[in-house]
Amino acid sequence: MADPMNQSSQISSSQGLNDGHSASSKDSKFSVTDLVHWRDPKKSGVVFGVSLLLLLSLAAFSVISVVSYLLLALLCVTISFRIYKSVIQAVQKSNEGHPFKALMEKDVTVPPETFRKHVDVCLTHVNRALKQMSRLFLVEDLVDSLKLAVVMWLMTYVGAVFNGITILILADILLFSVPPIYEKNKTQIDHYIDIARTQVNNTIAKLQEKLPGSLKRCKAE
């Protein structure tokens, strides 16, 4: 007959292993959403700081200079560490081998299945975008095409004030600042968004009512 104490200890140990496995899997599934919502302030702070520093560097220097400096800095760190470990091994007369041996033995190649999977996903998005562009520029729906025209007209003013790097810097700042603010004031923000959406939908409905009959029939088709 089995000992109840042994059974309970086995159950608790298996539960502990499951909890540890679930915790590790939870950590591995740290997504972009968690990153921009600052679930882990250290990770979010590092990513935000590095991305902002990179964009500011691109604003001050050329892409070639920034990439060259980054690779040069990385090489300086790895070469210095390699020389340091070689000197330490020579002084201590140890035989630890190459300091980056564990990293060198890792497989950094991209499996063909993974590559094909990402290519298929990208191809799906590209085809969807091409279909949408065809629908808008060939004026399948006059209202939607007019919306695009208004957005492009506004973007001409944005482009006259900001360049591409400045827009990316602002987008990076907004990406890491807006989600926490929205999460704290979700009710009030959703209320004002609903009001704005209602006003826009009413305006679009009034414009659609004033369209000529031929355009209405074309839209209905």
Rank of each mutant, 00 (worst) to 15 (best):
residue 19 D to K: 12
residue 19 D to W: 06
residue 19 D to M: 11
residue 21 H to P: 01
residue 23 A to V: 04
residue 23 A to F: 05
residue 23 A to W: 02
residue 24 S to C: 13
residue 25 S to D: 09
residue 26 K to I: 05
residue 27 D to I: 13
residue 27 D to C: 11
residue 29 K to N: 08
residue 29 K to C: 11
residue 30 F to M: 03
residue 30 F to G: 09
residue 33 T to K: 09
residue 33 T to M: 14
residue 34 D to K: 13
residue 34 D to L: 11
residue 35 L to Q: 04
residue 35 L to T: 04
residue 36 V to H: 02
residue 36 V to S: 05
residue 37 H to P: 01
residue 38 W to I: 10
residue 40 D to A: 11
residue 40 D to F: 05
residue 41 P to Y: 03
residue 41 P to L: 09
residue 41 P to R: 09
residue 41 P to S: 03
residue 42 K to Y: 12
residue 42 K to R: 15
residue 42 K to T: 15
residue 43 K to S: 09
residue 44 S to L: 10
residue 45 G to H: 05
residue 46 V to L: 14
residue 46 V to K: 11
residue 47 V to P: 00
residue 47 V to M: 13
residue 48 F to M: 11
residue 48 F to K: 08
residue 51 S to E: 14
residue 51 S to F: 08
residue 54 L to I: 04
residue 55 L to E: 03
residue 56 L to A: 10
residue 56 L to N: 06
residue 57 S to D: 09
residue 59 A to C: 15
residue 59 A to K: 09
residue 59 A to E: 12
residue 59 A to H: 15
residue 60 A to Q: 15
residue 60 A to E: 11
residue 60 A to T: 12
residue 60 A to L: 12
residue 61 F to G: 03
residue 63 V to E: 13
residue 64 I to T: 11
residue 65 S to A: 10
residue 65 S to N: 15
residue 65 S to L: 13
residue 66 V to Y: 00
residue 66 V to D: 00
residue 66 V to H: 01
residue 67 V to M: 08
residue 67 V to C: 07
residue 68 S to C: 06
residue 68 S to W: 00
residue 69 Y to C: 11
residue 70 L to N: 06
residue 71 L to H: 00
residue 71 L to Q: 02
residue 71 L to G: 01
residue 72 L to I: 07
residue 72 L to P: 00
residue 72 L to W: 02
residue 74 L to H: 01
residue 75 L to E: 01
residue 75 L to K: 02
residue 76 C to Q: 08
residue 77 V to P: 01
residue 78 T to Y: 02
residue 78 T to F: 04
residue 80 S to M: 08
residue 81 F to Y: 06
residue 81 F to R: 04
residue 81 F to S: 10
residue 82 R to D: 10
residue 82 R to Y: 06
residue 82 R to Q: 10
residue 83 I to Y: 02
residue 84 Y to I: 05
residue 85 K to Q: 15
residue 86 S to E: 13
residue 88 I to F: 04
residue 88 I to W: 03
residue 89 Q to I: 02
residue 89 Q to T: 01
residue 89 Q to D: 04
residue 91 V to I: 14
residue 92 Q to D: 14
residue 92 Q to S: 13
residue 93 K to H: 07
residue 94 S to H: 02
residue 94 S to L: 09
residue 94 S to F: 01
residue 96 E to H: 10
residue 97 G to H: 02
residue 97 G to A: 09
residue 98 H to P: 00
residue 98 H to R: 01
residue 98 H to E: 13
residue 99 P to D: 01
residue 101 K to M: 15
residue 102 A to R: 12
residue 102 A to I: 14
residue 103 L to E: 08
residue 103 L to H: 03
residue 103 L to C: 03
residue 103 L to D: 04
residue 103 L to N: 04
residue 105 E to D: 08
residue 106 K to I: 07
residue 106 K to D: 07
residue 107 D to Y: 02
residue 108 V to T: 13
residue 108 V to F: 15
residue 110 V to H: 07
